[in-house]
Computed example of a mutant assay.
Amino acid sequence: YVQYCRLRPKYSDGSKVHPYCGKTCANKDNMKNRTPAMGNQPPQLFVPGANCDFCSVRPKYFDGTKTHPFCSKTCSKNANGHSHELSRKHTTVTRNPTSKAPPGICQAPNCRNAVYTNANGSLGDYCSLAHKTLGETLCLMCLQAPKMTLSHFCSQACIERAEKTGPVLFEVPAGHTTFKSVADQFKASWRHSTHCPPVRRVYKIYSPAPSLAAYEAYKINVESRGQFVSQGRSAGNENRRWHGTRRECHLGDKGHTRLCSSTTCSLCCIIRTSYDLKLFGKKTGWGRFGRGIYTSSTSSKSNDYSQNDCKSKLKAIILNKVVVGKGYKLTHDLTTLTSPPQGYNSVLAEKGGSLNYDELVVYTNDAIRPSFLVMYEP
């Protein structure tokens, strides 16, 4: 759909798909990207698709020769002040999402107001709806400001700080929208007849910048060939899928967010360097759909592969982001595969035939990255 109106499909003249649905949207978008001329100066242009590093709403300012990181002097000033404030806070505040204000005190950052009392007499966690919204959308780095849309962080400063420290785990507060999104997916995709255990902790996994860049480059390449966005899907047909593996250490337990140094702790190795096809078959010696990286949309299936080699009250499972692209559907074993069939990007192993539950198989390391570590009761 058109990026300007987001209502009508892009116009196709039979040989080419145009960026707009019609001349009206094209003209409006072109006018939107200009500001009125002042005096004898030419109109100032903005670069479409490159949003301000601070507000992430308006396009970055373009002066005719250079694209600036911000949309205006106001955002530039605010960003510099915000970065200095964040730097000051980061040197004095220990990030601790599990620490809470005393009972009856608002849980929002730096607020000491009394919490709201519900109609039934019970106490809420926040003093106001505004602070409740803030608490549910906090930046996972600084835990001070609301995160930007389509990001886990509030600013470019926090993004850069995360990139410098990756691989790293950020514990997601229990009341956060991200926690709810992950926990809801875990519960909704538990398809075995057994009781779905409760999720106790969720950690955002932030991989090193080069690793993320390789994944994004692969996704862009798949999208350019498949045009999934124009079909109403995510870029590259990216989806979240589960993977269970072996844990030797206490990573994910309360207070344990540092990766262990064991080369045989599969959980820490995956989080540190992502998945590696060189290790295929190390445990099972074979793959139902050949030499690939296996995930599932069914959390209870991946739970079967989650194994603790340590004493812990919780089990661990990874929620990954996977570039599915164009998937080739299979219901029976095909163990000789080393890549998807020509013209496809992955294998969608569907329930039925030799499978009780689905599997998604990709055949290149850059098609998948660990995204969340989820801790749940056995």
Results as ranks from 00 to 15, higher is better:
30 N>S: 12
31 M>S: 13
33 N>H: 13
47 V>L: 05
57 V>A: 02
57 V>I: 13
58 R>T: 04
58 R>G: 00
60 K>V: 02
65 T>S: 04
67 T>V: 03
72 S>D: 00
83 S>D: 13
99 S>Y: 01
101 A>V: 01
107 Q>F: 08
111 C>M: 07
116 Y>H: 10
122 S>L: 04
125 D>L: 10
128 S>D: 10
137 T>G: 00
142 C>A: 05
142 C>S: 06
145 A>C: 00
158 C>M: 03
166 G>L: 01
166 G>H: 07
172 V>F: 08
175 G>V: 06
176 H>I: 04
178 T>D: 09
190 W>Y: 12
197 P>Q: 10
200 R>K: 15
207 S>F: 10
209 A>R: 15
212 L>R: 15
217 A>N: 13
234 S>L: 06
234 S>T: 15
235 A>W: 03
236 G>F: 03
237 N>T: 01
245 T>Y: 11
253 D>S: 15
261 S>R: 15
263 T>Q: 13
276 D>G: 07
278 K>D: 15
280 F>M: 10
286 W>F: 15
291 R>W: 12
291 R>M: 08
296 S>H: 11
314 L>A: 03
314 L>E: 07
318 I>A: 05
323 V>A: 07
328 Y>A: 09
331 T>E: 05
347 V>R: 10
351 K>L: 01
356 N>L: 13
359 E>G: 12
364 T>N: 15
368 I>P: 06
368 I>V: 15
373 L>K: 07
374 V>P: 09
